[in-house]
Simulated assay, not measured.
Amino acid sequence: MDLPSATRAAVLTAHGAPLELTDLPLPAKPEPGAALVRILCTTLCGTDIEIWSGKMTFPGMLPMVLGHEMVGEIVAVGEDTRDALGRALGPGDRIGWSESTCGACHGCTVLREPVACSARGYGFLQRSDAWPHATAGLCEYAYVVPGAAKLLLPAETPDTWAAMAGCAAKTVLRAFSRVGGVRPGSRVVVQGSGALGLFATAVARISGAGSVVTVGAPASRLALAREFGADETVDIAGGSAAVVDRVRELTGGHGADLVLDFAGAPSVGREAVEMAAQRGRVVVVGSTGPGSEALALGTVMGKELTVVGSLNGDIADYHEAIGFFTSFRDRMPWDRLFGTPVGLSQASARIEAMSRHEEIKAVVDPRLP
């Protein structure tokens, strides 16, 4: 079959501006280990919104194609293209993929941590005006480079779930793993009521937490948090001091045994330390912004807290996220996280809606008009 030589894409050319629909060139033939896919579904992430708004930026990043949670159907593959488990891939296979890594740097070879790769290729590190142009989700077709870890997806996993597993879900599961998991019967506080916070609320509940408190806003999301397993919710509208006081009240004055930051607001780290119990654990995941309030290191020392950072996830976390959805597909109303699918022409409107907290995870299907 003749391969497409170009793809329609929604390109971000300026922060805060509408995406521009344009055509981007595609490679004439996939390299060994690479794949050309037709995008079936892209779910937008909070990082996409931060990049669009300019909250997350760096020199030279624009123009670019947003979207790093996606699922595609293979159109063509290069020689010996396999997934992370060694399974041969070919046209018609449905895959997801993780960031590309070099396999040769200190992070890859000594630390054996793909997220520490010094040449890690993420969707938002690829300019759309430079080869290979189209590697992200807001395209009709995307080029999955040889170094990207690919995963053949089970047929029973819906496109939206599989796409979300590519960032949001794998990020949450890695955070729980990095901090040592949930101790049965423990008190857990989740900071943030976006997609990551809601998913983390569900993970804490399924993992055997004794009580789960979700902190965030607006009220509609806090109501949804209860559907995902929260025993109590705390609205941030009352201010930082009131949030900490309420959490301590809900935990019998002891504080939380485990606090997970999926919010990233400047005050979140300080609040996490204050609301943590003696010898509690705190994991920092959502702090992607440029600034934050100072932590009370004396409190960290006095409470003997364990503070852990967790950055995104790799193909192992992605595989675990797909398995999680498979194992617990009926435990939570997962589809409540996703909006109504739209085409590329409406992607800008859905991004703006997410920025106003009107939608949790926008869904873009480039096959739609």
Rank of each mutant, 00 (worst) to 15 (best):
Q346D: 15
R174S: 00
R226Y: 02
M61G: 07
L151C: 03
V215I: 11
D48I: 11
L305W: 00
L258H: 01
S287E: 07
E359W: 07
G137T: 08
S327Q: 13
G343T: 06
G302A: 06
V115G: 04
H68E: 10
A17H: 11
K55Y: 07
D83S: 05
D314F: 12
E140M: 11
I322C: 04
G103L: 15
P4T: 09
F124K: 04
A119P: 00
V273M: 07
R94S: 02
A219K: 03
L224V: 07
L24M: 05
A175E: 01
A219T: 12
R279S: 08
A204F: 08
G323C: 04
C105V: 01
T157W: 02
L368K: 03
V244Y: 07
P32V: 01
V342G: 07
A163Y: 03
A88N: 05
P290R: 15
R350Y: 02
F176L: 13
A35F: 13
L153D: 14
M164L: 15
A347L: 00
L24Y: 10
L305F: 02
I74H: 00
L250G: 15
A223G: 01
G181N: 09
Y318K: 05
L12A: 11
A175W: 04
P27Q: 06
A34N: 08
S100H: 05
T251I: 05
I315C: 07
K361D: 00
G238L: 11
P333R: 02
G86Q: 11
A241F: 07
M64S: 12
E156V: 09
H133D: 03
L337Y: 10
F324Y: 14
V75L: 15
L344H: 12
L111F: 11
M1D: 11
I322H: 09
G147P: 14
G67L: 00
H254N: 06
A195G: 15
S207E: 14
I51T: 10
T22G: 02
V247F: 07
L151I: 04
L62C: 08
C41S: 14
L196Q: 15
